[in-house]
Design a binder for these strands. Structure first.
Lengths: 146, 146
DNA sequence: CACTGTATGTCAGACTCCTGACATGAGTCC
DNA sequence: GGACTCATGTCAGGAGTCTGACATACAGTG
């Protein structure tokens, strides 16, 4: 049954299951956001911007786990869509603080509801205690990797 | 402190922390595998193939969460590197079972050790009970999303 | 047997995201 | 004040992955 080789057993590897769960979540989010005409990357940026208004492109990039070059083009499309606005020039330094437009806020509200529903589905088999425990464990893992 | 808007609170969102932990793990794996000249995708394929020898390209694709088109080109490069072999033509149907070569097995052994070290680091702050609990919670989440 | 459905391997094009590079602005140390 | 370091925004090019499409092979159904 169990493999004799000195490798990683997929079924008992936290790392692999982390990948499995994360991939399943992303796929479910894509499926839920598609009818709204929004991608996961767009949603992630808008959500982060809603919680931390005025974030710069580089800061948004770090928060959504993409490079600042990718966030650069992402913000351009979000500005074209009228979801986000940025000042023409920086007041101090080079940082251009981004903020949600009213339209962006409305679109985000719809997307956020859809994503919340996905998350509820994901947590369906867990108790409230499990949920708290999951937060603790995931935080510990992320912190341990710096 | 806590945002008034009816959105998702990032710090208490299991979904967001799942993404955080997963991204941190992938970055750590990339960093650990780079000195060995191996990418995370290559490693994942080899590891899966070691546990389930004879898997077809389509099956490998599903197990590593890429499309079978991507796995197709991936297998081509792994064959060029001499890590993997596939028969010229299928015995039955169209499936071409892939297997590790001795070289592929040796390269995987090194990579597997490096990745195991990363996973140990990730689990550094957790007890053995925590580890078992993490497996249960992650499995539940993945299953709930189908 | 023919027909339908499903799964595979493969090719082509498009898209996303990344790596590399450059210029600019702010802070630090001498 | 000048040199160094760091962070940011931006542009160009490339590597990896995806979507779309096609041909083929098997299983099930009438």
């Amino acid at each position: 049954m169990s493999p004799e080789r000195d490798g990683v057993d997929l079924d008992t590897s936290v790392g692999y299951l982390l990948k499995v769960a994360s991939s399943a979540l992303r796929a479910a989010m894509e499926h839920a956001l598609r009818p709204l005409g929004m991608t996961v990357t767009h949603y992630s940026t808008l959500e982060l911007l809603a919680q931390r208004p005025g974030l710069s492109g580089a800061e948004l990039a770090r928060g959504t786990f993409v490079t600042r070059q990718s966030m650069h083009v992402l913000l351009q499309s979000l500005e074209e869509l009228g979801h986000v606005t940025r000042p023409q020039e920086a007041e101090v330094g080079r940082t251009l603080p981004a903020t949600l437009t009213p339209l962006g806020r409305r679109r985000l509200a719809l997307a956020s509801a859809a994503v919340r529903e996905v998350e509820q589905t994901m947590l369906g088999g867990l108790t409230e205690g499990d949920r708290v425990e999951a937060l603790r464990l995931l935080r510990s893992m992320a912190d341990a990797l710096r």
